[in-house]
């Protein structure tokens, strides 16, 4: 821990210098206050949001979208990816459809989805789900196909059934791939959640940031942006930590 701290200490010093430099540049009039308030003022606003608990409701609103979409999309991706990797018939059936839907930019689907599902949570969660599915699906497919043939033969020799083999051999073996796909999807999920909130014009952090800018509440805009950035940082950090725990066996025999 102390060692890690020492490793990032120079970086933190640079960050502090950078903030101090910005503070000075704003005070000296090099950057206009209406564009960027001094970092200390943003800090005070941020502190007010945090201390008053005002940040909780929007944060939870965004988090709910991310988690719901991420969970649903991951399950669909893993199930479909496993089926396609395991049964050639399933691969032949779904592969053209997947290849057709994959290049569609999911963010462009938000406006059509708004027509069908309105601007509520259903639309937002569906948008997040759609973007989560594909990286998970493709990585699961790759992982399932990469399972050691010898292990599969051994499982058959021991008379393991399909369900048992999938659950106890194929999925654990594909787990590193699945988790790598899920890590990509988690970042995308946050992006789509924020975008859907912005386009819907209501809810969560994404809407607030856009709304504050349009109302010229610039300090608040930056404060909410910092909260969103921290959310991204924490989500990624937590996922990486969980991933490392789930894959602790992997490092022993690389």
């Amino acid at each position: 821990m102390a060692e890690r701290l020492r490793a990032i200490l120079p970086g933190l010093a640079v960050l502090a210098l950078l903030l101090a430099g910005l503070e000075w540049a704003v005070e000296a009039g090099l950057i206009r206050r209406v564009l960027l308030p001094p970092p200390s003022v943003i800090g005070t606003t941020l502190w007010d949001l945090l201390a008053s608990g005002e940040f909780i409701a929007p944060l939870l609103a965004t988090l709910r979208l991310v988690f719901a979409g991420f969970a649903i999309g991951s399950v669909i991706g893993v199930v479909l990816g496993t089926a396609m990797g395991w049964w050639p018939a399933a691969f032949r059936l779904f592969e053209p459809l997947v290849e057709l839907l994959r290049p569609i930019p999911k963010s462009a689907l938000v406006p059509p989805l708004m027509l069908f599902l309105g601007i509520g949570d259903t639309m937002k969660i569906t948008s997040v789900t759609l973007v989560v599915i594909f990286p998970v699906l493709l990585n699961t497919l790759q992982g399932v196909r990469g399972v050691d043939r010898v292990m599969l033969d051994a499982a058959r020799t021991h008379g393991w059934g399909t369900a048992h083999t999938l659950w106890h051999l194929v999925l654990p073996a594909a787990l590193p791939f699945i988790l790598a796909g899920m890590r990509i999807s988690l970042g995308l999920a946050l992006v789509l959640a924020v975008l859907a909130e912005m386009l819907a014009g209501q809810g969560g952090l994404g809407f607030l940031i856009l709304d504050m800018q349009r109302s010229f509440l610039i300090r608040q805009m930056y404060a909410w942006l910092v909260i969103l950035a921290l959310l991204g940082l924490v989500l990624n950090g937590v996922f990486v930590a969980l991933e490392r725990r789930a894959l602790h066996w992997q490092n022993r025999n690389p």
Partner: peptide, 11 residues
């Protein structure tokens, strides 16, 4: 890095 892209558009 972890800032979602749409959020940097307003500033």
């Amino acid at each position: 890095r972890p800032i979602p892209v749409p959020a940097v558009i307003p500033p």
